[in-house]
Design a protein around this nucleic acid. Sequence first.
DNA 1: TATGAATGAGATTTCATTCAT
DNA 2: TATGAATGAAATCTCATTCAT
Lengths: 217, 217, 217, 217
Amino acid sequence: MPETREPQTRKPDAQRSRADILAVARAEFVEHGLSGARVDAIAEKTATTKRMIYYYFGSKEGLYSAVLEQAYADIRSTEATLELRQLDPLAALRRLIEFTFDYEDSHPDFVRLIAIENIHQAAYLTRLTTIRNVNADAIASLDEILSRGLREGVFARECSAVDIHLMISGLCFYRVSNRHTFGAIFGCDLSVTEMRKRHKAMIVETIVGYVRSGPMS
Amino acid sequence: MPETREPQTRKPDAQRSRADILAVARAEFVEHGLSGARVDAIAEKTATTKRMIYYYFGSKEGLYSAVLEQAYADIRSTEATLELRQLDPLAALRRLIEFTFDYEDSHPDFVRLIAIENIHQAAYLTRLTTIRNVNADAIASLDEILSRGLREGVFARECSAVDIHLMISGLCFYRVSNRHTFGAIFGCDLSVTEMRKRHKAMIVETIVGYVRSGPMS
Amino acid sequence: MPETREPQTRKPDAQRSRADILAVARAEFVEHGLSGARVDAIAEKTATTKRMIYYYFGSKEGLYSAVLEQAYADIRSTEATLELRQLDPLAALRRLIEFTFDYEDSHPDFVRLIAIENIHQAAYLTRLTTIRNVNADAIASLDEILSRGLREGVFARECSAVDIHLMISGLCFYRVSNRHTFGAIFGCDLSVTEMRKRHKAMIVETIVGYVRSGPMS
Amino acid sequence: MPETREPQTRKPDAQRSRADILAVARAEFVEHGLSGARVDAIAEKTATTKRMIYYYFGSKEGLYSAVLEQAYADIRSTEATLELRQLDPLAALRRLIEFTFDYEDSHPDFVRLIAIENIHQAAYLTRLTTIRNVNADAIASLDEILSRGLREGVFARECSAVDIHLMISGLCFYRVSNRHTFGAIFGCDLSVTEMRKRHKAMIVETIVGYVRSGPMS
DNA sequence: TATGAATGAGATTTCATTCAT
DNA sequence: TATGAATGAAATCTCATTCAT
């Protein structure tokens, strides 16, 4: 409504409507979880109506699934722009960790969504077959870095890409996902700039240190 | 009803009712989250009735808070039995990490509850004043280990107990909290014995390695 | 509300509420079918609320099932008072036919309900296990009449009770169930007293005639 | 769309669309009844769109009426090919009964449609003025058989064509319309070949027996 | 302390129908 | 003649909570 916008050439607003709903829904699900979210609340914040939500997504759960799918697609497509193969193994590993840290740090919504999906035991993610392939790439990429590093003698430890991925994710995800309870218990705010910088460096060093040191360090 | 009914000493029964409700509620909240849990479902699985839930806990949220409080009390009381001060710093740090790993691995309910509470931005935990003191101890204990290690020359890096705690928690918590999405995406089951052992060793080695190596490793 | 009625001894009104809902629901289902019936409409005509319908019957379909069950229980319990065994075979058969005719003629609601259930391919009746035993009796009773008649030489044709039951039901049911289309097409009203009498006699005579005549009449 | 599109003679397509919609609608109404049928479901199974349904038939009820009209037209046009006048009265009566039996047995859809229309108290049929004339013929035809039979001494009972029609219809219709509840209650399948044959013979014999026997049999 | 019935407010979902093109 | 998007009204159902006893 802020500016007159004539209907683009042909297609009405289907894409726009869908995208609008998705964005609003994402915020609502992130804020209240799947059961806590209200379709009415989503509809109200939308340019369309509640009816349209069902028209496009079939059900609250269908909408949630779409939100989830989009969230995963987003991170993986961003990740794909990293071009890690062009860096030497150490730089590539650092960059991957830093990217993970930065992405989760700057997308607490994404983190919350994953946490919510875990509460539901990944029931919805499991049904999204599109996701799996995309993620195989992420692991393949990390695997390539690790074996290149080993070959070149930069890394000393032979380790599984999935294991390293697990650790990177754990370290980066937890400080976002659990910042509220952590803050409540230890009386600190993990999102403070100074802490964020320190933790980023710490995590990089921890993982890099692990990979570079020999198995019986 | 025709049976003799001696004037039951009141308290015992009340205690049992309360405990019964708490146990059932915990299972329900863990399974479905706060908004997903149903008071009706809890009442049905209880020996008592719905009215009693309100009598004892006032509301669904009151019940949830009580469950949360109990969960934290449990872990901290277990943690207190570790007697880390009697071990040398390296052994103490290992033991603390292993304990954390084992506790979260064997208490996925607890992990889920914390994840749920984070979805609600720790709103309920924040109000539980009993919790904070208890946790100061945990940090004090880790801090003692770290400074002792530094003093004795076993550890090379000066670092904050809260930071190390954050990393230990992140690594141990994530593999339980996110095992569903992780499993769905990478097609693996993190709870398999062989993986659990490997990850436990890996996490210990990672943290210990970080602490023992110098800051410019 | 027409007279003050103090709450009977103990139990509140559960039985009363249930029965009230059932009666109203029956009328609504009979009038509009299962899909055409409105829970709101039922609730409005009830002393209770819509919420109570779900409290007692769980769903619209649950309510419909209960209505169906009661309808079948009613006819069979009425049928059971016929005491056909005390009559000679011919009289017993006549009486059974007349009873069927009269019951369906005076209970068009019941007839409609069965027709509705057939539209749903007996999906709900099939799940009502209570019904089956009750109906075995009806066939056993008719079977007894037929074989007694054969033995005594009053009937000449050996025929299955289920077949005879099918014919009796068909003749009695159809003139009620299809009276609307029949009336519309042939411009007559099957419920007129004079016709009812004639048809009742005709049906009795038709069936009795069939049973008494030899197989190659 | 780049294909050559000759100015299609309009009517043909329109006719086909209409016929397509009618066929799909008939299946849907037969399956779910008038209220249970979904316009969306019909549209989906159609080559055309929902808008066309409204274009051609005005409303869901208009569509239903059209389906009903067509169904009646079908049976009567088939019936007209019987040429009963060329047979002797007994053969003609047998043939009419057998035809009725066979038609309803092989057109359960038609039977269901009539049953559905009766649920709605023939409200839609009543408005279809085309139907009535057509049916006068059916009765006239049966009347001719009955009076010819009486005259020739083959039949002994003077009876109304409408009454006999009622009985034939009742016997043939019921075993199709009520086969679901009947099957559920008596645990049998009325459509089994062996039973169908037996019942066909039985019904013929029952009606013929009635007509041929004297009034005080 | 205990209980079964009851409930109002609001949640999700459905459906016949129409609009803009 | 045709279409895909859109919709208001109303349907079914749910839920935390309380009342009467």
